[in-house]
Simulated assay, not measured.
Amino acid sequence: MKVKQPEPFMFEAGDRAVLLLHGFTGHSADVRMLGRFLHSKGYTCYAPIYRGHGKSPEELIDVTAEEWWEDVVEAYQTLKDKGYTKIAVAGLSLGGVLGLRLACNQPLQGVITMCSPMYFDNEEQLTIGFRQFAKEYKQLERKNEEIIKQEVDQLLEASKGLFQQIAASIERVKENVDMLYTPTFVIQATNDQMINPDSANYIYENVESEKKKIKFYDNGTHAITFSNAKDEMHEDIYTFLESLEW
């Protein structure tokens, strides 16, 4: 069975644009509801899909973490080429890490991180996420459980180098986040099962921006854009964006 491949989206509205960045193993659906909400409020929203994402787990581990960064820079340039000069970025999980890196390298109106890791203190948790993604993908292909287990085990062995790259990219951003002066909104689910929630405190305490905000959501999960916290979070993000100097 062929699995339908997701696509990037661009919802154009006013002259204020928000670049929406998905997480590791995810794709544009991670941020589609947020994009629809912000679009309804007059914001242009663009969500790219990084190389290897939205495809098979084999294709995902056949790229590098640095290529994802290149894809984010290219997405930012796409908005610039379309004439948008006022751009904010919002990213889920690894997308938030990439958003912070973008804010350190390009002029942005604001940056929003959602459940974004700063500590690579439990690689096993990311491995669990990748294992689940790979298993579900192969179930969609209607393979039997024995073959799925065998192929997932092979994938986990082959992905070790990529996880080392992810760790290095997170560490790079962590070391440089104190150079960030862009207005920042840090969002974190209290009961995040995937990353260390104290990452949020690290980002908030170390960014140098005079305008920064942090909020923990008790009814959120790591995939907070799909969680019961999403409606409250949408309103909070909109309020933050409206408070910026566009």
Rank of each mutant, 00 (worst) to 15 (best):
K138A: 04
N144Y: 13
K82H: 15
A29D: 06
E232P: 00
G83D: 13
P57Y: 01
F24W: 08
M33T: 14
A134S: 12
Q150A: 14
A13H: 01
S93L: 05
E59V: 03
S28M: 00
L60G: 06
C115A: 11
Q109T: 14
V31E: 02
E210Y: 11
Q139G: 05
E136C: 03
H39W: 09
A17N: 08
H234D: 12
I195E: 10
G14S: 08
V72R: 05
S209I: 08
Y181P: 00
K211Q: 14
A168G: 11
D198A: 13
H22A: 08
Y84I: 12
K41Y: 09
E151Q: 14
E58Q: 07
I166M: 13
W246N: 11
F226T: 10
N144H: 14
I170K: 04
N228W: 05
F37D: 09
L38I: 06
F9N: 00
S159F: 09
A17G: 09
A229E: 02
K55E: 14
L108V: 12
G110P: 03
G42P: 12
A223M: 04
G83M: 13
N105Q: 15
E171K: 15
D218N: 10
R36L: 13
E245R: 15
L19A: 12
L38G: 10
S40D: 15
I203S: 04
F24V: 04
T127V: 12
N196P: 03
M10H: 15
K135W: 06
Q154E: 13
H234N: 15
P197L: 09
T64K: 14
T225S: 10
F37T: 07
P48V: 04
N228Q: 09
P8C: 03
L92G: 01
K149V: 05
